[in-house]
Simulated assay, not measured.
Amino acid sequence: MSIPRQRGLTEQAATAAIDHACRMLRLPTIRSQFPELAETAGREQMSYLGFLSELLLAECDDRARRRSERRIKAAGFPRDKSLRKFDFDANPNIDAAMVHTLAKCEWIKKGLPLCLIGDSGTGKSHLLIALGTEAAMAGYRVKYVLATKLVNELVEAADEKQLTKTIARYGRVDLLCIDELGYMELDRRGAELLFQVLTEREEKNSVAIASNESFSGWTKTFTDPRLCAAIVDRLTFGGNIIETGTDSYRLATTRARAEQQLATS
């Protein structure tokens, strides 16, 4: 359906025509914002080009925001975590400058790995999710998964003869975030399947992991020494390692809150 073009439209008719055109062209932001932007343009005596640029930039900005939201949702993060909400003062082991440099995503562009190593409650999962969110906002395809869930999925895929397809799916994302690596012992089959995923991504797409075990303790998870060494090599070669320490931030916060309640009671 074409839109008849007429000169001398009334303001009401012009508004209806713009609304109809925006629906046809799928410009929801311009459709919702043009009355306010038109009023601002008239008040500030903007040129026609200036007004048009404001409309188009508003649409572009909103589309970029919606794309970011879709990528963040597709990543499957279990909760919302951001760098802005991370308390670097509470954990002096973490170099804030290094983390903010990582947030620029150059390491993902180069396909390098990232390892976050530390005890429970030291902020490694928060940083993993926050950096993954930054990557999604920057336009990268991101997937978050627990190590146990990933291995179980790979085992099921192998049993159903869907392993190649599953590994390829995990291989396509720009950043694979594997959380809670080291919380369980993997049998040789599970470890080998995980190794296949890491090999598929090696020097092509980035992997970021969070683990409560230092590398020396990974033999508890990967009981085959050679396989363990190969996995450590895949996850560290040319990459970044952040050690979040052993002092639980969550535990310290809980104790401080309890002490404050006792003091005020």
Rank of each mutant, 00 (worst) to 15 (best):
M1D: 12
S2T: 08
S2Q: 09
P4N: 08
G8A: 05
T10S: 04
Q12F: 02
D19C: 07
H20V: 11
M24I: 14
P28M: 11
R31D: 03
F34I: 08
P35A: 05
P35D: 01
E36K: 08
E39W: 02
T40V: 12
G42F: 00
E44C: 10
G50Q: 13
L55C: 04
E69G: 08
E69A: 12
A75F: 02
R79E: 14
S82D: 13
L83R: 15
D89V: 04
D89T: 02
A90T: 03
N91G: 08
N91I: 02
P92G: 00
N93D: 14
H100C: 04
L102I: 03
A103Q: 07
K110F: 11
P113F: 12
P113S: 12
C115P: 01
I117Y: 06
G118E: 02
D119Q: 03
H126I: 04
L131I: 02
G132L: 15
A135K: 06
V142D: 02
V145D: 06
L146H: 13
K149T: 11
N152K: 15
N152M: 12
V155K: 15
A157G: 10
A158F: 05
A158M: 11
E160P: 01
Q162W: 01
T164D: 07
A168V: 05
L175K: 01
L175C: 05
C177H: 02
I178F: 15
A191L: 10
E192G: 02
F195Y: 15
L198K: 14
T199G: 01
E200K: 09
N212Q: 07
E213N: 14
F215Y: 13
G217V: 10
K220I: 09
T221M: 04
P225R: 03
L227G: 13
C228I: 04
I231Q: 04
V232N: 06
D233L: 01
R234T: 12
G239H: 09
T244F: 14
A252G: 15
L262D: 08
T264G: 04
